[in-house]
Design a protein around this nucleic acid. Structure first.
Lengths: 214, 214
DNA sequence: ACCTGAACACCGTTCAAGT
DNA sequence: ACCTGAACACCGTTCAAGT
């Protein structure tokens, strides 16, 4: 059988197990003891590879970052490329809804995210933005992605639209109309995100056409 | 002196103390024992008034909701009214940065938020939106507010811009240009938010002018 | 009715051991 | 070098007791 154990654990194995645990059983189920369990080891062993639970959360953030497909940013035309990138960014959180609480902790600005941002900013500048405008646009796109990821998770209006009548008639009308357009529960989130994306990128295109130097 | 204590505690007193504790010492310092301490009582006493810590967090969410000024929504013209409302909404989180983790838990859609949403949607419909478009626009605005609140907290790029060179030249350029526009640390967040707001409301105004029925 | 002390089952983390 | 058992100081929560 060989020696009892040499390197059962590694930082990446721990990170992957942590993300699996979050996906399977929720963010609150991520406990050092539960994590060790999933790795066939006892809680204290983890501390030979990671410094703290916070350290583990950082590693999971990096895993999520790595899932973002930033190849669309390299593809012309810039407007479709950026839209595809933003959708892919958002899709990572849709795949890991239980991990969204991580975002609130620290954002997704891990070390690995820097080159993505650099590419996004370079794309915007190449499209005609000043560097300052590029930074603002990237921020706005980020807010939209992060905000929509969170809202999906928090899904506000859980009751059937009709229950909001008669106290909140505009709310009831809007929710019913939205459900008629697409009854899927996340459809309104998706459409709100797409609207924001269209407005930001459309507005930017218009601004670049009329005043290319700011 | 009177009798020893009758109703030292109440749900609102607990909620207010909880928000104070979060503001003063951070989200993680909100402990049932620390909360009881601040109220001059022992931990177990709290459970005569609230059901669980989760219950307390909900109460704090309602407190934050109540801080949002939604009077601008009633003021014409709609575009400025909605912009002022969104800024005020965001300002609540700027006043309580440590409370942003609450948002990830549940969003801000407490019972008290319903009438705000109803008013926002009514304003959009009065401005010419279909109910479905109003819902999507409200969602996009929400994403922008929530996302920008979170990003401020998570403030990504903490190092001086020059450190990102030469690996990430577009990032360094953008951050330096943004700092020249306004060196305040949250300025880029503010400007990104304003850009998103301008794009969404401007795009909407344009859409309502060219195709008033969708 | 409301506050309390003590207890329960958990946490994250440390550390002297073992191999 | 790496895993472990036992312990530490904490959690949220419960409950029999006191007033």
């Amino acid at each position: 059988m060989g020696r009892p154990h040499q390197t059962l654990l590694s930082r990446t194995a721990i990170a992957r197990a942590a993300l699996e645990l979050i996906d399977d059983r929720g963010y609150e189920a991520l406990t050092m003891r539960a994590l060790a369990d999933r790795l066939g080891v006892r809680g204290a062993s983890l501390y030979h590879h990671i410094g703290s639970k916070d350290d583990v959360l950082d590693l999971v953030s990096e895993l999520l970052d790595a899932e973002i497909d930033h190849t669309p940013l390299r593809s012309a035309p810039w407007r479709e490329g950026i839209a595809a990138y933003a959708r892919g960014y958002r899709r990572v959180f849709q795949r890991h809804p239980n991990a969204i609480a991580l975002v609130a902790r620290r954002g997704v600005h891990t070390e690995g995210a820097l080159s993505e941002y650099d590419t996004l900013l370079a794309t915007l500048i190449r499209a005609g933005c000043t560097p300052a405008l590029a930074a603002e646009t990237a921020a706005a796109l980020d807010f939209l992605v992060i905000g929509s990821a969170l809202e999906t998770y928090a899904a506000g209006f859980s009751r059937p639209p009709s229950e909001y009548r008669p106290d909140y008639p505009a709310l009831a009308d809007s929710l019913e109309a939205a459900a008629r357009v697409d009854p899927a529960p996340t459809a309104l989130d998706d459409r709100g995100f797409e609207l924001g994306l269209r407005m930001i990128l459309g507005g930017l295109a218009h601004q670049l056409k009329t005043a290319p130097d700011e």
